[in-house]
């Protein structure tokens, strides 16, 4: 029964606030209800009303009416604060399954007014508070749990605000059609599942990382900080990156077929661990999965590409 109800609610929400990469909060999408504090406030107003009657004190009565009216005005102000906010799906910060990733949400004051104290979070994530000024947009990374590998649907974004008086809470549940990539959770251990070159060299050389030193070049953003020639920097010669030539025989292919003893999901996890390990050692590596070949390479972008391939393997969600 509860499941049915929840299903029905999800369907209703879907109809009311359909998924979209860009959602402007308006009448159809905003819900509003008094908070506990709001009810307390009304109770105080009611108490004062009764007090006013009993003491035959018109001023106390007027005070209670004023509080009530303030509450009514707060309805509009609270609603107004959320209405007109535009939410857009932004980038993502993938993470490992079982850990947390984050998705970027861009909050845009669609109209030229302040929207203060907006609280945003993904279900299961931490919430963040922000305010956007007129014509401003603020992007924020919100974390979320990643229960499994692949592209994780974060469910609906929760946005709410109690500004200005905290008497009412206006909120919306927005499906930004956003997905967060979850890499397989690294499974440590085992021998390096590498083919190409000689396997043992792969292992031996791993620590040395001493490929042929080729020269220096000026540091560009994105270079691994481990490759920076720090000694030269200390001498005041600026940031330079050490270049190494990849020894042809040392290229490694992380190979799915090298892990026959593991179930498919664990194979991916083991591969993921070795990706991190090889990356740490500044070794070039490629990836062989059934139907997927990624040429050897190095660096953070390469690592991401490999991890993404592992994350999406076999899920039919490649893009």
């Amino acid at each position: 029964m509860r499941a049915r109800l929840r299903q029905w609610y999800a369907r209703w929400l879907r109809r009311r606030i359909p998924p979209a990469q860009r959602v402007a909060l308006d009448r159809r999408r905003i819900f509003i209800f008094p908070t506990g504090y709001g009810f307390l406030f009304l109770a105080i107003a009611a108490m004062l009303f009764i007090g006013g009657i009993n003491y035959e004190n018109n001023l106390i009565m007027a005070f209670s009416f004023l509080l009530t009216s303030l509450f009514v005005m707060a309805i509009f102000h609270t609603y107004r604060n959320l209405s007109g906010v535009v939410l857009r799906a932004g980038g993502q910060e993938p993470g490992f399954a079982g850990g947390r990733g984050s998705l970027e949400v861009v909050v845009d004051a669609g109209d030229r007014r302040w929207h203060r104290s907006l609280w945003l979070r993904w279900p299961g994530g931490h919430q963040r508070e922000l305010s956007v000024g007129p014509g401003e947009e603020i992007s924020t990374l919100l974390d979320l749990p990643l229960p499994r590998r692949g592209r994780v649907d974060p469910n609906r974004l929760r946005i709410h605000s109690r500004y200005p008086l905290g008497l009412l809470r206006a909120w919306s549940l927005v499906d930004l059609d956003h997905r967060c990539l979850a890499w397989p959770r690294p499974l440590p251990g085992g021998a390096c599942p590498a083919s190409g070159g000689s396997t043992d060299q792969g292992q031996r050389n791993a620590d040395a990382g001493s490929d042929d030193f080729r020269g220096l070049r000026a540091y560009v953003r994105g270079d691994s900080l481990r490759l920076v020639d720090w000694k030269a920097y200390a001498r005041g010669q600026g940031l330079n990156t050490k270049l190494f030539s990849d020894p042809v025989e040392g290229r490694r292919w992380l190979d799915w077929d090298q892990l026959p003893e593991l179930a498919p999901e664990y194979r991916l996890q083991r591969l993921a661990w070795w990706v991190l390990e090889l990356d740490r050692q500044n070794t070039a590596y490629g990836l062989l999965l059934p139907g997927v070949v990624l040429d050897p390479g190095q660096g953070p972008n390469h690592r991401r590409a490999i991890l993404e391939a592992l994350a999406l393997y076999g899920l039919g969600e490649g893009d």
Binding site: G215, R217, A218, V220, G238
Partner: peptide, 9 residues
């Protein structure tokens, strides 16, 4: 361009 070698930015 600063990325070239042998320069003093």
């Amino acid at each position: 361009p600063v990325t070239q070698t042998g320069t003093f930015p």
